[in-house]
Amino acid sequence: MRELTFEDVTVRFGSRRRGTVAVDGVNLVVPAGQIVGLVGESGSGKSTLARAAVGLVPLAAGRIRLDGQPIAGLRTRPLQMIFQDPYSALDPRMSIGASIAEAIPRRPPLGAAARRAEVGRLLELVGLAAERAGARPDELSGGQRQRVALARALAGRPEVIVADEITSALDVSIQGAVLNAVRDLQRQMRLTMLFISHNLAVVRYVSDIVAVMRHGRIVEYGPVEQVLLDPRHEYTRELLDAVPRPGVPLGS
């Protein structure tokens, strides 16, 4: 378990004069062994912040640290990311077992039998039968593919997992199963996780802490029950008002 920290992180696209600031001086702490739910509407900068954490977009300013050490200077890859679309994240030409095995570190070296056993263990860990290792992505449902993506992320033995809108592409009927898998794995393995969603109900279900992002900035941060039951920022209240409530007709 390690703590992930963003210090005055800024991400800019384009030139300084004509560019766009997607993330603007963000300070954010993801405590060791906890899930921080990062919520905001489309275009708020939350996915850009996630990509910056795993090195997919460069920083214009600031630092990202793991237990106080700059991530940029670490030799290993301590963060793994799970993307929104599980199908595009998996090679359709490879079996799911091969995709997972590809992510297993080469040090220490494992023999073929040990790698197959590790793939089976990871599949069972995310609620899939080890025998499904030979299946290809197009033989699986969206929820099953997202479980494979989770197993693949765990195969890299990460210190931190960044999950970016991992249920938004799934049918409502299977979102709950994936969220249960995420929550159970986090509790079992004490993972540190940055969980990104536009859905406050989802964030409330899986997170210990919630951070609310708007226009590239964090506008509210705190324990999930405190923020969602007693929001201090007007934007957080607007997001809460937009959450559908059982028995309330749309538009009422």
Score class of each variant (00 low, 15 high):
residue 19 G to M: 09
residue 128 L to P: 11
residue 167 T to I: 15
residue 32 A to S: 15
residue 221 Y to T: 14
residue 208 D to Y: 07
residue 225 E to M: 06
residue 243 V to W: 03
residue 189 M to N: 00
residue 62 G to H: 02
residue 168 S to H: 13
residue 222 G to R: 14
residue 2 R to T: 07
residue 94 M to A: 12
residue 47 S to F: 10
residue 139 E to F: 01
residue 54 V to P: 01
residue 20 T to S: 15
residue 27 N to K: 11
residue 157 R to D: 13
residue 226 Q to W: 07
residue 232 R to I: 09
residue 138 D to P: 00
residue 252 S to H: 14
residue 72 A to H: 13
residue 126 V to Q: 01
residue 9 V to G: 05
residue 84 Q to K: 04
residue 4 L to H: 02
residue 146 Q to V: 08
residue 45 G to P: 03
residue 115 R to S: 05
residue 82 I to F: 03
residue 55 G to K: 06
residue 181 A to K: 08
residue 41 E to W: 02
residue 232 R to Y: 03
residue 155 A to L: 14
residue 158 P to D: 12
residue 9 V to W: 04
residue 81 M to P: 07
residue 153 A to G: 15
residue 173 S to K: 06
residue 188 Q to F: 01
residue 3 E to H: 01
residue 105 P to R: 03
residue 180 N to Y: 13
residue 247 G to K: 10
residue 5 T to L: 12
residue 5 T to D: 00
residue 87 Y to W: 12
residue 91 D to G: 11
residue 139 E to G: 02
residue 30 V to M: 07
residue 103 A to Y: 06
residue 177 A to P: 05
residue 7 E to H: 10
residue 69 Q to W: 00
residue 56 L to H: 05
residue 101 A to D: 04
residue 108 P to Y: 06
residue 98 A to K: 13
residue 59 L to D: 07
residue 234 E to D: 15
residue 95 S to T: 10
residue 225 E to Y: 01
residue 97 G to H: 09
residue 237 R to W: 00
residue 62 G to I: 06
residue 207 S to K: 08
residue 116 R to H: 15
residue 216 G to L: 07
residue 35 I to N: 04
residue 196 I to F: 08
residue 47 S to I: 14
residue 52 A to H: 01
residue 227 V to T: 10
residue 23 V to H: 09
residue 119 V to I: 08
residue 79 L to F: 13
residue 76 T to I: 03
residue 203 V to R: 14
residue 165 E to A: 13
residue 236 T to A: 15
residue 22 A to C: 08
residue 140 L to G: 11
residue 139 E to A: 08
residue 27 N to C: 11
residue 182 V to A: 05
residue 29 V to G: 00
residue 2 R to L: 00
residue 67 D to R: 11
residue 59 L to S: 03
residue 81 M to D: 11
